Amino acid sequence: TDVTFHVNGRNLHLKGADEELLRRIEELIRRGADIEELEKAVKEWEK
């Protein structure tokens, strides 16, 4: 799945995201995470 999140005026584009990653990103956004936290979560998922 390709999806782009718009967070605090910045874009986080995910290519090939699975349901697990999407749920994790949505949860972080609900908690008020900043873009750096979201990018870190994506990097951890990519490993």
Rank of each mutant, 00 (worst) to 15 (best):
T1L: 13
T1I: 15
T1E: 08
T1R: 15
T1Q: 13
D2V: 08
D2F: 05
D2W: 08
D2Y: 06
D2E: 09
D2L: 07
D2Q: 04
D2C: 06
V3A: 07
V3L: 06
V3K: 11
V3I: 12
V3H: 10
V3Q: 05
V3Y: 10
V3C: 09
V3F: 12
T4Y: 06
T4H: 07
T4G: 02
T4N: 05
T4V: 14
T4W: 08
T4L: 05
F5I: 15
F5G: 02
F5S: 01
F5P: 01
H6C: 15
H6R: 08
H6T: 14
H6A: 05
V7C: 08
V7K: 02
V7R: 01
N8V: 01
N8W: 02
N8D: 09
N8G: 08
G9K: 01
G9C: 06
G9V: 02
G9E: 05
G9H: 03
R10Y: 15
R10S: 15
R10C: 15
R10V: 15
R10P: 03
R10G: 15
R10F: 15
R10A: 15
R10W: 15
R10I: 15
N11R: 09
N11D: 15
N11H: 15
L12F: 15
L12W: 14
L12D: 00
L12P: 00
L12E: 00
L12G: 00
L12K: 00
H13S: 07
H13T: 15
H13E: 10
H13A: 05
H13W: 03
L14P: 00
L14M: 04
L14I: 15
L14Q: 00
L14S: 00
L14T: 01
L14E: 00
L14F: 04
K15I: 10
K15G: 03
K15R: 08
K15Y: 09
K15V: 13
K15E: 05
K15F: 11
K15M: 08
K15S: 07
G16K: 07
G16C: 05
G16A: 07
G16D: 11
G16E: 05
G16M: 07
G16W: 06
G16R: 07
A17N: 03
A17E: 02
A17P: 09
A17G: 05
A17T: 04
A17M: 03
A17S: 04
A17D: 04
D18H: 10
D18K: 06
D18I: 02
D18T: 15
D18Y: 02
E19T: 13
E19W: 11
E19D: 13
E19G: 11
E19L: 11
E19V: 14
E20N: 14
E20W: 11
E20V: 11
E20D: 12
L21E: 01
L21A: 03
L21C: 05
L21H: 02
L21W: 03
L21K: 03
L21V: 09
L22K: 06
L22Y: 04
L22H: 03
L22Q: 04
L22D: 00
L22V: 15
L22I: 15
L22F: 04
R23L: 11
R23F: 09
R23E: 08
R23P: 01
R23Y: 10
R23W: 09
R23D: 06
R24G: 07
R24D: 07
R24W: 15
R24L: 14
R24H: 15
R24V: 09
R24A: 10
R24Q: 13
R24N: 09
I25H: 00
I25T: 02
I25W: 01
I25M: 08
I25K: 00
E26L: 14
E26V: 14
E26F: 09
E26K: 13
E26S: 10
E26R: 14
E26W: 11
E26I: 14
E26Q: 09
E27R: 09
E27G: 12
E27P: 01
E27Y: 13
E27D: 14
E27I: 08
E27A: 10
L28I: 03
L28M: 14
L28T: 01
L28E: 04
L28A: 07
L28N: 02
L28S: 04
I29N: 01
I29Q: 02
I29S: 02
I29P: 00
I29G: 01
I29Y: 05
I29T: 02
R30S: 12
R30K: 10
R30A: 13
R30C: 08
R30F: 11
R30H: 11
R30D: 11
R30L: 12
R30T: 10
R30V: 12
R31M: 11
R31P: 00
R31N: 13
R31A: 14
R31T: 09
R31H: 14
R31Y: 14
G32Y: 04
G32V: 03
G32W: 03
G32E: 05
G32D: 04
G32S: 05
G32T: 02
G32A: 03
A33W: 12
A33E: 08
A33I: 05
A33L: 08
A33T: 06
A33Q: 07
A33C: 11
D34L: 08
D34Y: 07
D34C: 04
D34G: 10
D34E: 12
D34P: 05
I35F: 15
I35G: 02
I35V: 05
I35S: 02
I35T: 02
I35Q: 02
I35W: 12
E36G: 07
E36S: 06
E36N: 10
E36A: 08
E37P: 02
E37D: 12
E37N: 06
E37T: 12
E37F: 09
E37A: 10
E37Q: 11
E37H: 09
L38T: 01
L38S: 00
L38R: 00
E39C: 05
E39R: 06
E39M: 10
E39Y: 09
E39V: 13
K40Q: 13
K40N: 14
A41F: 15
A41E: 14
A41T: 11
A41V: 11
A41K: 07
A41S: 08
V42L: 07
V42K: 03
V42G: 01
V42Q: 03
V42T: 04
V42R: 03
V42D: 00
K43V: 10
K43C: 09
K43F: 11
K43R: 12
K43H: 13
K43I: 09
E44I: 12
E44C: 06
E44A: 11
E44N: 11
E44S: 10
W45E: 04
W45M: 05
W45G: 04
W45F: 11
W45I: 04
W45V: 05
E46A: 12
E46C: 07
E46G: 13
E46W: 09
E46R: 10
E46P: 13
E46S: 11
K47S: 08
K47C: 09
K47T: 13
K47N: 12
K47L: 14
